[in-house]
Design a protein around this nucleic acid. Structure first.
Lengths: 366, 366
DNA sequence: CTGTTAGCGCATTCAG
DNA sequence: CTGAATGCGCTAACAG
């Protein structure tokens, strides 16, 4: 029923080995022979059997991309960029592409931010003998989980998979660094610091912070940057009181902002964990009759595409998500040299827009 | 180096066959034996070899989800929902999950809207002997490509893969329907019609339409709904002049709106192909000094999460993306009965919000 | 440059 | 309920 390599070989009057060689292109084959084989492949409409191939070669052409939330463009942009550097279709555009060997299959796996799912996907990828794995976004900081992930990655690497971290800090654990080809870490701390400094420079003193979920590296780094700036301005001791944690979604921004307003009605600025959260914060403020930025300034993080289009446009910190994802993809494919030490810091750029302004004179406190 | 099933069998003092049986759970095994095997699996930290398993079983546990643009939440939401019904991690939460067999690996493939990539991914999935394939979003209408896709799907189905269409109309081609388990089609036409009717009811007569890329089913159906409504209001003949096509992105909405304004400065409403495009339209209008909705009303489609948070909130058509994606996932897993005829229409709901209002008296035309 | 020979690791018959 | 044997389809040494 299903046509195999042997069928192609028979039709092309060559040995199966030769067919395998032209399909994988990793071996010299006479042009005439190759033509004949290729024609047979086309005639028979042959499609390589991936599992058989992977079994024999002890490696597959699967490249896994783990994301925390596939519905969030933050991850979608990175994943799409990575995929563009990997994806079978990209390089081999010709007819019959994908029919034979060669192309990698970039696949994105959605962990939903769950530690268990992250581990399970890693195992599933290990089981598939993935050629490479890219982990995107912040890591969970539970020591036990970190150790488990590090162990898994070590095994993956051991089995020949290239592991790349994108938007995630390098593995702190012993041996962790060896398992990873490269880690591209966003400068979340620096970006957050500059953002809060911007607010302080405008004259804000009572600044609420809607943080992400606890025990995530991204959350902690951004919060630390905020604290650094506040501390330097002599406001370090109020930060905790004006910080509320929640998931990275719109709803969290909404709820947390109401809570902040309750704690401190004289709030003149809200810094959100990311742009999506900032959207929720804006909604809450408007509902409370506060105008942005006249009554309260709002700032986000990431600079997602919609952020420039909100009204007023959102002041935020731009992360080069596409570029970082693409680089991670190239790194995973071994098409780019790893940065020195296997670690690269990805810069974050402050984008000042309409949602932040000096606090109005009428604002309380001083 | 790498531990195999035989190693586990040796340690558990059973035959490889028995180990295979407990791992796949498709066969009676004495409880005591199972315990022993499971312990050996844990002790050895054994991970099933996916390729070998797939080769022997002639089917894999991969489920492919094709999306047109992974950075677009429209697809991210559907893909995430589908994955939640499939994903290994979901059902089997216990320790050791994913180590053994059973779980499916949901993988999303980003075609970028390119026909070639779509076909190549389908081939790659066929090559991997995917257990199921879900195609999301609108299809490209080129007859040649449609035929190629239908042929590929037929082959996939032939090889045992369950094919599900989500947010895509059923295959019109002969034999196409047989290849597909189920098609969940959004009521794009009806939703678009009701949206334009809403605008007409408000009194708008000069309505611009920013359509999606040509030759996409989604684009055509939405445009047809718009035309239906306009035609019924006796305005059918101006539709073409006030329609501009472009990709489903923010930039397109921006550019197209400027073009529409050039063609017809007296425009009182803009209907966008989707919410993202609507965002761009809003930006362009504001830049031209038109206020929304006082000078010009704007409407989108999809009701993505951010749409309720724009200023003013966007009038749009809500598509139950999550629900549809989840259902597609269940259908792909055979955990839900296919709808009668294999086809189900997914309703679209008009969401009237602040971005649409009656045209101002000063508006020209009549 | 090409053919021959062995497995890769597992799921299945078929016996028992 | 369990073990022994066979082959899934392909790649990777080896020869030639």
């Amino acid at each position: 029923m299903t046509v195999t390599l042997a069928d192609v070989a028979a039709r092309a009057q060559v040995s199966p080995a030769t067919v395998s060689r032209v399909l994988n292109g990793n071996y010299p084959v006479a042009a005439a022979t190759r033509e004949r084989v290729l024609r047979a492949v086309d005639d028979l409409d042959y499609v390589l059997n991936g599992p058989a191939s992977s079994l024999a070669a002890a490696t597959s052409d699967l490249v896994g991309i783990l994301v925390n939330d596939i519905a969030d463009p933050f991850f979608g942009i990175m994943a799409g960029a990575a995929q563009s550097q990997i994806g079978g279709p990209e390089g081999a555009g010709g007819p019959g592409a994908g029919r034979a060997g060669g192309e990698k299959l970039a696949i994105v796996c959605n962990t939903g931010g769950s530690p268990e799912r992250e581990l399970t996907y890693l195992t599933l990828l290990q089981r598939q003998r993935a050629a490479a794995v890219i982990l995107t976004g912040g890591a969970i900081e539970d020591p036990e989980h970190s150790a488990a992930v590090a162990a898994k990655l070590a095994k993956l690497a051991d089995a020949g998979a290239r592991v790349v971290l994108c938007g995630r800090p390098p593995l702190a654990l012993p041996g962790g660094a060896d398992a990873v080809v490269a880690a591209l870490a966003f400068d979340n701390r620096g970006g957050a610091r500059r953002l809060t400094e911007h607010l302080l420079a405008l004259g804000h003193r009572t600044i609420g912070y809607v943080a992400g979920p606890v025990e995530r590296t991204t959350t902690r780094h951004r919060l630390e940057g905020h604290q650094e700036a506040m501390g330097a301005a002599g406001l370090g001791d109020v930060v905790e009181h004006l910080t509320v944690h929640g998931p990275y979604d719109r709803r969290s921004g909404y709820d947390a902002t109401l809570e902040l307003l309750r704690r401190e009605p004289g709030l003149t600025a809200v810094v959100a964990a990311n742009d999506t959260v900032a959207l929720g914060a804006c909604a809450a403020l408007r509902e409370q009759g506060r105008s942005i930025p006249d009554d309260v300034s709002v700032a986000g993080f990431d600079d997602l595409p919609f952020s420039a289009d909100t009204m007023p446009a959102l002041t935020t910190v731009r992360l080069p998500l596409y570029e970082a994802g693409a680089r991670a993809g190239r790194l995973a494919m071994g098409r780019e040299a790893a940065p020195p030490g296997g670690i690269a810091s990805v810069p974050a750029e402050l984008m000042v827009r309409g949602s932040t302004a000096a606090p109005s004179e009428a604002a309380p406190r001083g």
